[in-house]
C-alpha cells in the first residue's frame, strides 16, 4: 500500500519540554483522521514539525514516498485561526487567492483564472457573497470558511487542519465537515487536530490518539475505546458512560 504520509520515530521539543517522543504512524490515502489528545500533548507541534515550520530532533518523514520539499504542492495547511492578524487590509477573495501564490510563482500577477478559482472555492464554502468583504468584518465561522476555501484552492492531495472547528457556529461546523467529507470521497486525505471528543465518532473514520507519543491509531471504531482514552488523557477525564451525539 502506498501510504500518503509515513512518520518514523519523530521527536521534537518546545522550549524545555520534549513534546513529541518517537512518534510513528502511517496514513493511507482517502482517510479522514482526527488527531486528539490533551493540551500540551503535541498535536499542533506535530503538524508544524511535519510541515517543517518547527525543528525536529529525530525521525524520518515522507510524503507520498518522497521528501516534504518535493511534495509541497500536494500538501495543504489550514493553521489555527488565531495565528493571523484579522485587521490586515484585505478581503475574503484576496485571502483565498493567497493560496495560489505558490503556484503563480515569482514576479507574476494573479490573473483572471486565479480569481475564478478563488471565487469557486469561496462558493463551495458558501461564502461567494462575501468575496469583497474586509476580513475583520467577518464572524469567526466565516473567517474559518475563508481559510478552508484557501486550502481548497490549493487543490492538494493531503490536508492538515489545526482545530478548524474551534469557536465556530453550528452551521459553519456542518459546512466544514461536509467539505472534508467531499474531499475524502474524491480520494483526498485529511488530517484534523480536533478538540471535541463528543464528535470524534461522527466525523472521523480514523483516529490518532496522541500524548507525546502515539497511544493508539486506527479506524475509529477500533481505536477510539475507553481504555485508549484513559491512556491518552491519563485519567483527567471522567467517562460519562454512553456519550450522546
Amino acid at each position: 500500500m502506498n501510504s500518503v504520509l509515513s512518520v518514523q520515530g519523530l521527536s521534537a521539543s518546545y522550549r524545555k519540554y520534549q513534546v513529541l517522543d518517537r512518534v510513528s504512524f502511517e496514513i493511507q490515502p482517502g482517510t479522514l483522521t482526527g488527531i486528539i489528545g490533551p493540551n500540551g500533548a503535541g498535536k499542533s507541534t506535530l503538524l508544524k514539525t511535519l510541515l517543517e515550520l518547527h525543528p525536529k530532533l529525530t525521525g524520518a518523514v515522507s510524503f507520498f514516498g518522497t521528501s516534504y520539499k518535493k511534495a509541497k504542492n500536494r500538501v495543504g495547511y489550514v493553521p489555527q485561526r488565531g495565528s493571523v492578524d484579522w485587521d490586515f487590509p484585505t478581503d475574503a477573495l484576496d485571502v483565498v487567492m493567497m493560496g495560489l501564490y505558490g503556484r503563480i510563482g515569482w514576479l507574476r500577477w494573479p490573473g483572471r483564472t486565479h480569481r475564478q478559482l478563488a471565487l469557486e472555492a469561496l462558493d463551495k464554502m458558501g461564502m461567494a457573497d462575501y468575496a469583497g468583504r474586509q476580513i475583520s468584518q467577518l464572524s469567526g465561522g466565516q473567517q474559518q470558511r475563508v481559510f478552508l476555501a484557501r486550502a481548497l484552492v490549493q487543490d492538494a492531495d493531503l490536508y492538515f487542519l489545526d482545530e478548524p472547528l474551534a469557536g465556530v457556529d453550528a452551521a459553519t461546523e456542518r459546512a466544514i465537515m461536509n467539505t472534508l467529507q467531499v474531499l475524502k470521497e474524491n480520494g483526498k486525505t485529511v488530517m484534523v487536530v480536533h478538540h471535541d471528543l463528543q464528535t470524534v465518532e461522527d466525523y472521523f473514520d480514523h483516529v490518532l490518539m496522541l500524548n507525546r507519543s502515539v497511544i493508539a491509531h486506527g479506524p475509529t471504531d477500533a481505536a477510539f475505546t475507553k481504555e485508549n482514552m484513559i491512556r491518552t488523557y491519563g485519567g483527567a477525564i471522567r467517562w460519562m458512560g454512553e456519550m450522546s451525539g
Partner: peptide
C-alpha cells in the same frame, strides 16, 4: 502581502 499576513501559510507554500 502573504508573508506579512500569514507567514505560516506562506512557508507551507514554499515562499
Amino acid at each position: 502581502k502573504i508573508t506579512s499576513f500569514d507567514p505560516a501559510l506562506a512557508a507551507s507554500l514554499g515562499i
